[in-house]
């Protein structure tokens, strides 16, 4: 990666997300249960699991939004909340709806950019990159789901971070947008960044990700490459179905 040019790649886990026995309990539900895995740079890591498996919770724990019951999550070898300019190290899209609807897209990005000393030029740049330049001055409340997803991706990209996390970013995107996300993820990974991407669209995941982490009921089910899984099963979807069959909590009666 650009930021490491000049010196040999250090082994201090740069660009790595590391979960160590991460556990989160909400009252009676164990949302994340002793989860340990590592996400490395250079490729897209797909984060899969049935509804309620704990994917979103895991991402909130990594970002310090929720406090783990036990265990820890490290980014670049440190806890997220100890980062001084986190946007320059980690970018995240958790919930595209988590915006104040009364603010314009430009002002939304500007107020977030300012916290990490990112200038207005970069705001304009990411607006163009995600295709929202034309509606930059419009209120976010009037945006469609897909436009909000693009805005959320713009937020993640603002600090040009080495680590990126996206929770179901293709949700609500049109076919054009889905392809755009796929290309974006792959090019970000090709630049040497670390990408953790959750999605329920198996065919899309098969095209985008190189490695897969599957969780069920908060526990790690398998960590493998897409190639390994598609060698053992007819498709990624078949692999997913077979591996998670015991962990589906909210399935329809069959």
């Amino acid at each position: 990666m650009v930021r490491r040019a000049g010196g040999p790649p250090s082994r201090i886990l740069y660009g790595v997300i590391e979960l160590q026995h991460l556990t989160k309990r909400y009252g009676g539900t164990l949302a994340v249960d002793d989860l340990s895995f590592t996400v490395e740079p250079g490729h897209v890591t797909g984060f899969l699991g049935p509804n309620g498996a704990g994917k979103s919770t895991t991402m909130r724990l990594i970002l310090g939004l929720d406090a783990p019951t036990s265990g820890q999550a490290l980014v670049n070898g440190r806890g997220y909340t100890s980062l001084r300019k986190p946007m320059r190290e980690v970018g995240a899209l958790l919930d595209a709806g988590a915006v104040h609807g009364g603010r314009s897209a430009y002002n939304h990005l500007l107020c977030l950019a300012r916290t990490n000393d990112i200038g207005p030029k970069r705001v304009v740049e990411v607006l163009e990159q995600v295709g929202l330049a034309g509606v930059a001055r419009k209120r976010v409340g009037g945006f469609s789901l897909g436009m909000k997803q693009r805005l959320g991706i713009a937020v993640a990209l603002l600090g040009d971070p080495g680590i990126l996390m996206f929770d179901e970013p293709v949700n609500g995107l049109d076919p054009d947008g889905v392809r755009w996300i796929r290309d974006l993820m792959r090019s970000l990974a090709a630049e040497g960044r670390t990408i953790l991407l959750s999605s329920h669209l198996m065919s899309e995941m098969a095209l985008t990700a190189e490695r897969i982490v599957i969780v069920g009921r908060g526990k790690l089910i398998i960590e493998a490459t897409v190639a390994e899984l598609t060698a053992r099963y007819p498709s990624l979807e078949d692999a997913y179905m077979a591996l998670t069959s015991d962990s589906v909590q909210f399935g329809a009666a069959r």
Partner: peptide
């Protein structure tokens, strides 16, 4: 409260974790 109501608080805390 507008941040809590909209979820913006989480977006804010990701940019300012302290």
């Amino acid at each position: 409260t507008s941040e809590h109501a909209t979820g913006m608080i989480r977006t804010s805390l990701v940019t300012v974790p302290r």
